[in-house]
Amino acid sequence: MEKRLTIKVFEEILSVCRLDKSARVPDWAEGDFLTITRTPEELSIVCCQKNIPEDVKCERGWRYFKIDEVLDFSLVGILSLLSGTLASQGISIFAISTYDTDYILIKEEELDRAIEALRLEGHHVSINGQ
């Protein structure tokens, strides 16, 4: 039997931004949800959409949810479980992992379908604590 997860959906709308690899982290990169990743090719920032200037290269309109539990590093297949469910419905994801858990970003227009698909697989999905 596959693991059933508790998933919390957040209201905030995010954007995924791409800046030049040598760019400084801008002042607008802030908010309750913020990831900053620098690679040899780019500076990637995910943050609250309302903070981002219009001229910044980014993909806008993402909603996000998290697996609402601390995931042990030895666990295998958690993202695969969720991404497989969503992929079977033709829903693209943007995944972010932290030390404690995993977050999945879904385009806002796909959120309702994603929630329905996850609930049909037996996961508990809460929106605003419900």
Score class of each variant (00 low, 15 high):
Asp20Val: 07
Val46Tyr: 04
Ile91Asp: 15
Val125Lys: 11
Asp68Thr: 04
Tyr99Cys: 04
Arg4Gly: 00
Lys3His: 08
Val125His: 08
Glu121Gln: 14
Ser83Gly: 06
Gly77Arg: 13
Leu105Met: 15
Asp27Met: 02
Leu82Ser: 10
Leu19Phe: 02
Ser88Glu: 15
Thr6His: 12
Lys21Arg: 14
Ser97Ala: 06
Glu110Arg: 06
Tyr103Leu: 02
Gln89Thr: 10
Thr101Arg: 07
Leu43His: 03
Leu34Phe: 00
Arg119Cys: 13
Ile7Leu: 15
Gly77Trp: 03
Ile127Cys: 06
Ser97Tyr: 05
Ile93His: 12
Ile115Ala: 09
Ile78Met: 11
Glu41Met: 02
Asp32Ser: 06
Glu30Ile: 00
Glu2Thr: 03
Arg4Asp: 00
Cys47Tyr: 03
Ser80Arg: 13
Ile36Leu: 04
Ile67Tyr: 09
Trp28Ile: 03
Thr35Ile: 05
Ile93Phe: 12
Ile106Thr: 11
Arg4His: 12
Arg119Met: 14
Ser88Gly: 07
Ile78Val: 15
Phe73Thr: 07
Trp62Asp: 04
Gln49Trp: 02
Leu79Arg: 06
Gly122Trp: 13
Ser15Gly: 09
Leu82Tyr: 03
Glu41His: 04
Val70Tyr: 11
Arg4Gln: 13
Lys3Arg: 12
Pro26Cys: 06
Phe73His: 07
Ser44Phe: 05
Gly122Tyr: 12
Arg113Val: 04
Cys17Asn: 14
Arg63Cys: 05
Lys3Cys: 01
Ser80Asp: 08
Trp62Gln: 07
Leu118Glu: 11
Leu75Asn: 10
Glu42Ala: 08
Phe10Ile: 04
Glu54Ser: 08
Leu79Pro: 00
Glu30Arg: 02
Val125Glu: 14
Ser44Pro: 15
Val46Lys: 10
Lys57Gly: 05
Ser22Leu: 03
Glu116Ala: 13
Tyr103Glu: 02
Ala95Thr: 09
Thr37His: 01
Val25Cys: 04
Gly129Trp: 05
Ala29Ser: 02
Tyr103Gln: 03
Lys50Phe: 05
Ala23Ser: 15
Arg18His: 12
Ser22Tyr: 07
Gly31Trp: 01
Ile91Asn: 09
Leu19Asp: 08
Glu41Gly: 00
Leu34Ile: 01
Leu111Phe: 02
Lys50Asp: 14
Asn51Lys: 01
Val76His: 07
Lys50Arg: 08
Lys50Ala: 10
His124Phe: 12
Gly31Cys: 02
Trp28Gly: 08
Asp100Pro: 00
Ser126Tyr: 14
Ile52Thr: 03
Asp32Gly: 12
Val125Gln: 12
Ile104Arg: 01
Ile78Pro: 04
Glu42Val: 01
Gly77Glu: 05
Glu110Lys: 13
Ala87Tyr: 11
Glu30Cys: 05
Ser22Phe: 05
Arg24Leu: 09
Ala95Arg: 02
Gln130Glu: 07
Ser44Thr: 15
Ala117Ser: 13
Gly129Glu: 09
Gly122Lys: 14
Glu30Ser: 08
Leu5Thr: 01
His124Ile: 14
Arg24Val: 09
Pro40Gln: 01
Val70Ala: 03
Thr6Lys: 15
Met1Thr: 06
